[in-house]
Design a protein around this nucleic acid. Structure first.
Lengths: 348, 348
DNA sequence: TGCCAATGTGATATCGTTCTCAAAATCGCT
DNA sequence: AGCGATTTTGAGAACGATATCACATTGGCA
């Protein structure tokens, strides 16, 4: 025979304990004006004594918006996303917001379902690393209803959301140039097909660098789900094989490295490699990987601040004009053929 | 002049559209009995047409509990935790629960703050990888009020929460034995001091194996915040240096590997190493790391199921009797001195 | 036929908070 | 002293959903 007693202390209890009305207590809690100092003290004492905590559900119901932001990422197994999520959660917490976490596994249905959940839960705003164009319409609908939205890492055209990106073109350009500087003439760009504009931009950067050097760009772009390793090996066994590889993201780098290891192809002697997206263990690899570092945590931080700012000023229906683009950094290690030296910060 | 219109459609709107009372609509939504089939159809149509979604805040306020679980992890940068978090989120979503994510950075104040947030948000239950004993009292208080709690990876005595652990003792024993089988006589156990019982158990397993072989256990246990790399190097330069190292967790392994690399100490020739806790890139390292694999995702899955089960049956005030212990697996690679062979599954 | 049970439906109270508005008290100024 | 302006306070109505209870309507069965 369970007696449910969770969170029994209500604002009314506090009010009664002080012999005042609930409104007075409410005003004290919310730091409003028009309360006498002594009253503030008396109420605060009672709150502490009774261990009172406001019921967020009631507040949300009344105020129409919870102090909660939703974060949708494709997955947490990719350190890029988990670092980003981590930063989001931290900044949000600092600002008094909770983070509702969603990992959609790049599944459009899941993403859609999650967005719909957001609506019913009076989420204050949405941070999303969008996985597919399919949710676009739903996001637009949410925007129309005044929901602030910030896209991280990737964006889609035609929707007025906040955007926090990295300098993909410049980063890819810089990386490719580095390979060219090493004397490579046949460079293979490996990754998933132009799913997102971030990937597109990286491909564009690669192309630009290669063409600037009057070389022929080579591509190996596959669809999600296709094993990329064997394709790379095949390319390396073709008549005029690439002497260097530029991988478009984290998972691609790992896939390629794994394949190269299995086939015992030596880096950088037989093939050099630079990856877009750095990761913690890159320096401990058999051949430490030269990589374009994306400031994952920074991305998350900026996005969260942007979102919360727009929450504060506007009532949500305002536009989301902002766009932040963060620089990348080329971390030179040995997979490109360099002796390990230094970091080359990247600026325009 | 913004007109706020978010989520205007209420249950009353649906009721009006059907010319019925709100209770009828509510009954349809919640699949209760006592509604005629035609009415169900009519209401469901209206719901779809109006794109109605129930307001969770209102439901929570009335029902006293939200369909939301809280997850507290020390950090997301450790892949062990992020994999775990990922699994939690997935299982929860399948069961219709949302996941509120918290990363406490092993900061006791943050953890406390987060727990108190949980209370005010009518969280249905808590999953926690506890960071310190400090929150124990608070957790106990929550338990007393009927909040289901499941601890993951670590537990503390004297509190009746659900527990999902791995076989730490057996895993450490197995790993240490493997080193002993390689002929090592002086094995150093490296890690952070007995902060958690999971670490304690690993140390116990190590000790047991070493003593079974009539060897002297050697320890290098530091407090959090102390750089572990230099200490290891110092130990290796002592008169009778260890010939093998057993690291107690992920971050320790990485710290040690980094130090060994910097000092150009060769693995496994100069020192062999086995780590507790495997990670994705372990096989791509300069010397692929032999490690005890913990089923991080499984841990998260089991914990989530346990929590949600206890949510369903009890009204929360029941006891949380369960304890699940999952097996580990020794992944043999080359850092132990083996040629790369196979996985040795671990069973009692 | 009469009566109890089961079914379908809606009016109303309630959850805990904040908003609106009005009343009371205080102050400043002519 | 008089009067408007300001501060301090509280009563009551929301917010949107569900629980409770009451009221019809049906059906089964003696």
């Amino acid at each position: 025979m369970a007696i449910r007693s969770r969170s029994v202390v209500t604002i009314a209890d506090v009010a009664r304990a002080c012999g005042v009305g609930t409104m007075t207590v409410s005003r004290v809690i919310n730091g409003k004006k028009h309360v006498s100092p002594e009253m503030v003290q008396r109420v605060e004492e009672a709150i502490a004594r009774l261990n009172y905590q406001p019921n967020e559900a009631a507040r949300t119901l009344k105020g129409r918006t919870s102090r909660t932001i939703g974060l949708i990422v494709p997955s947490l197994s990719d350190p890029f996303f988990s670092q980003c999520a981590h930063a989001v959660q931290q900044v949000a917490a600092e600002q008094g917001y909770m983070t509702m976490l969603f990992a959609c596994e790049a599944n459009r249905n899941v993403e859609a379902e999650e967005l719909s959940q957001m609506r019913s839960r009076n989420i204050a705003g949405i941070l999303i690393v969008p996985s597919s164009e399919n949710s676009l319409e739903q996001l637009q609908e949410l925007r129309r209803n005044g929901m602030p939205v910030v896209m991280i890492d990737r964006t889609f055209a035609g929707i007025d959301v906040g955007e926090v990106m990295v300098e993909n073109i410049e980063g890819a350009l810089r990386a490719t140039n580095h390979l060219i500087d090493h004397g490579h003439q046949r460079i293979l760009c490996v990754g998933y097909d132009r799913e997102y504009n971030s990937i597109s931009q990286r491909i564009d950067g690669f192309k630009k660098a290669v063409q600037n050097a009057s070389l022929q760009p080579q591509y190996l772009l596959v669809n999600r789900g296709v094993a990329i390793g064997p394709r790379v090996i095949a390319a390396l066994r073709s008549p005029k094989p690439p002497t260097a590889i530029f991988t478009l993201n984290n998972v691609t780098s790992v896939a390629v490295l794994t394949a190269l290891k299995r086939e015992e192809i030596r880096i950088p002697q037989q093939v050099a490699i630079i990856g877009f997206d750095d990761f913690d263990l890159a320096s401990l690899l058999a051949v430490p990987l030269t990589a374009v570092r994306q400031p994952a945590a920074e991305l998350g931080r900026h996005a969260t601040r942007m979102l919360i700012d727009s929450l504060r000023v506007g009532n949500g229906t305002g536009r989301m004009p902002s766009r932040i683009v963060l620089p990348t950094e080329l971390i030179v290690r040995q997979s490109c053929g360099c002796e390990p030296i230094s970091r080359i910060p990247h600026s325009k």
